[in-house]
Design a protein around this nucleic acid. Sequence first.
DNA 1: GTCTATAAGTTGATAGAC
DNA 2: GTCTATCAACTTATAGAC
Lengths: 235, 235
Amino acid sequence: MTDATVDGSRTMTMPVSDRSTRGDLTRDTLLQAAMQAFAAEGYDKVSLRALAARAGVNQSLIGYHFGHKQGLYRAVFVEIAARIRARLDPEMAAVEAALSEGEGARDRAADFDALFRLTDGVLALMTGPGSDAWARLIMREQQRPTEAFDILYDGFMGRFLDLVERLVARLAGPIEPEAARVLALTVLGQILVFRSARASVLRAMSWRDIDAAAMATIRTALHRNLQALLAAAPP
Amino acid sequence: MTDATVDGSRTMTMPVSDRSTRGDLTRDTLLQAAMQAFAAEGYDKVSLRALAARAGVNQSLIGYHFGHKQGLYRAVFVEIAARIRARLDPEMAAVEAALSEGEGARDRAADFDALFRLTDGVLALMTGPGSDAWARLIMREQQRPTEAFDILYDGFMGRFLDLVERLVARLAGPIEPEAARVLALTVLGQILVFRSARASVLRAMSWRDIDAAAMATIRTALHRNLQALLAAAPP
DNA sequence: GTCTATAAGTTGATAGAC
DNA sequence: GTCTATCAACTTATAGAC
């Protein structure tokens, strides 16, 4: 349990006695490579051999750190949920603040602002640069949910949908709870389509990918749509 | 090249000299089983061994009829595109008729009617009973397009999106072509979400699946949304 | 914690008889 | 067109030395 026999170079980048042991680093490296690989090729096509090779880690260490292939897959989703929760937390907290300002003191402009922050956040999350890996994995779980879906739903999806539902209910005027929930889902759909039907989107719009300009176009359209959709109901 | 050595029973269900030879039947059986299997388990997880067994067909016949695994996969999409085109053709033709009635003779009610028929058709297609198989395969190609995506897009997707775009452009009043296309995609998104985020939908709505009642709820919400979204622009 | 080596099983494809 | 039989490659998982 001591010296670096083969790969001396690796020890150089690592403090000797630190919290992040060599094992933690290996675990992290594997986790990163796995997220990339599962998203790019799909669960079944990823071979642990190739994955270990690409991560520069011995194959048997996967078994040591994660048990089996499914354990590694599961760990990837715990990581994804944590990252997304961290990234979306400011927006969600803002919405919760706006919602708790009492039902009496309605400020439509503030409510719309909160809603836009939320939708913009999810749009960036699902279509922005670097979103490919986790977005694809999330979509995969939507089609064929495993235990990993629970990690996502309990991690951020449920909270997000709940917030959108309460927000649109307040903005749309008197509305049944079930209708509010369906409305929230159609709002989500207008964002998600740019990920879930990405191939069609790119072809229909003649885009090569969804860059900053494209995202601005989408954002504008979404805001306009939401305002039309949630226009004040007649008293 | 003649008699039925082993399986005499199969010959009984078949006319002797007909257009549909024994080979055609084998091909069809394989195609059906493949569509089911690829949708249920994903391309990589499907083993040709298991597939042939489930179809009651010798494994090597896959090679004979489709060349290799990818050839079989491709053939499945040709079949899907043909079926969907057939099923959506009445609605699309109706819209084309409505659109060709001259830009001058605007009848908003008729335009909305045509649009609803189109969206209802796609909603039923993507979420209705028995939609699981092809819908999942289509989603798969949206995330990671192969040559099979072209078969879908050229087969019906392109035409559908084009029709929706022209329709919303007429209904939404003066609008840039790019904005009309994005608007059409957000309309599509409100339908597709019930397939693409199916796991979230079921959990958020506490539905066990999307049955007739659920679909009626969705349809109502969609029609209301579209009318709000496409309200006459101020002159 | 990390390594080598290998067990035990599947896979897609095809050669060749009928 | 359909069958049996088989190959070569690749998979996950693990035993055991260090």
